[in-house]
């Protein structure tokens, strides 16, 4: 690991001033950045420790929404009463991620910004357009069993690994960013970029910005929601496919639906097409499957991951069915 300077920021103003220096990186829980530094994929000159910033609270807002400080630890958020009761899919999503130890360290802001787990991104000997724009992509034609089925390009087929973000996408969360230039808010849906021909641009954050908070809107439908993660082992594995779903059914008719998928794209994938197909329809297995198919129509497989298209269809259908039958209980 390269030698680096360590700065501990005590307030947001200091932190966003410090990040303006070239080669500076924010350090939250460090569960991703430190690994990448050990692998020489990240080689910052300065690490700005932001864990002492006062951004570690979960607050209920007067408008019914919830404001989550960017430095709230994942495990704290998952255990929070408001999240568990009003947004169960979010609590469940977080608890399927990583391990207890990692969740105790990892921050909400860091989770949003975590990097892909594509093995070719992680190996400096491989070609990767994310790491080195224009170098090529060894995942195409290589080990891509867990690559994207939506929004991939000839430059990159990587997926975003977060579980939490899948729930945030379904919940229409907003990201608050701050820099010396001021504060702005962006919807989480669309915050992560599809690769196109510049997969090095992963999110809409500017180089000098700090995520200060995530805000959830008031969303009654979310109280009946769940998160289903399908993976190769029972714990401590990234999703092959995951589903965040919320459903409101009145008299057997779907009146509101929220659906997002994980493990399928460079962004948490809000399944708008499936939501449209559900709306106004009967809450039946057939309708769930039709909705899944509507979303998956646009899916494209790599050489090793065609199964993910079938798996996503089954996971969507099963999650909606379970939500309808069992409610939110994890």
């Amino acid at each position: 690991m390269k030698d680096f300077a360590y700065v501990s920021a005590q307030d947001v103003a200091t932190a966003v001033r410090a990040i303006a220096e070239p080669g500076a990186k924010f350090l939250g829980g460090g569960t991703n950045l430190v690994d990448l530094m050990r692998q020489n994929i990240e080689r910052p000159d300065t690490v700005i420790d932001i864990t002492r910033l006062p951004l570690d609270r979960v607050e209920e807002l007067p408008d019914g929404g919830v404001r989550i400080g960017a430095l709230v630890r994942n495990s704290h958020l998952a255990a929070h009463r408001v999240i568990r009761t009003r947004y169960p899919m979010l609590a469940q999503a977080i608890l399927t991620g990583a391990s207890g130890q990692l969740r105790n360290m990892a921050t909400v802001g860091g989770n949003v910004l975590q990097r892909t787990r594509c093995p070719y991104f992680a190996d400096l000997a491989a070609r990767c357009n994310k790491r080195e724009p224009g170098a090529g992509c060894d995942a195409i034609g290589g080990f891509n069993r867990n690559a994207a089925i939506f929004g991939a390009s000839d430059s990159c087929v990587a997926t975003h690994p977060s579980d939490m973000c899948v729930a945030l996408a379904a919940l229409d969360a907003t990201i608050e960013l701050e820099s010396v230039r001021g504060v702005r808010r962006l919807p989480l849906v669309g915050f992560h970029m599809l690769p196109g021909d510049s997969p090095q641009h992963e999110t809409a954050i500017a180089a000098d910005e700090l995520i200060t908070a995530i805000e959830l809107p008031e969303l009654p439908v979310a109280a009946r929601s769940r998160y289903r993660k399908v993976r190769d082992r029972a714990s401590y594995a990234f999703a092959l496919v995951s589903v965040a779903a919320a459903l409101e059914v009145r008299d057997g008719v779907i009146t509101e639906a929220r659906l997002a998928l994980g493990g399928v794209a460079a962004r948490p994938w809000r399944a708008h097409a499936a939501e449209r197909a559900l709306m106004g329809g009967p809450a039946t297995e057939e309708r769930f499957r039709l909705a899944a198919d509507a979303e998956l129509e646009g899916a494209v497989a790599q050489s090793q991951n065609a199964f993910k298209i079938e798996l996503a269809g089954r996971a969507i259908t099963a999650t909606l069915r379970q939500l309808q039958v069992e409610g939110s209980a994890a």
Partner: peptide
Amino acid sequence: MNAGLAEYHVPVHAD
């Protein structure tokens, strides 16, 4: 291409 325990899966306790 999976020279680490995150990608080379061995069973975890839950398995």
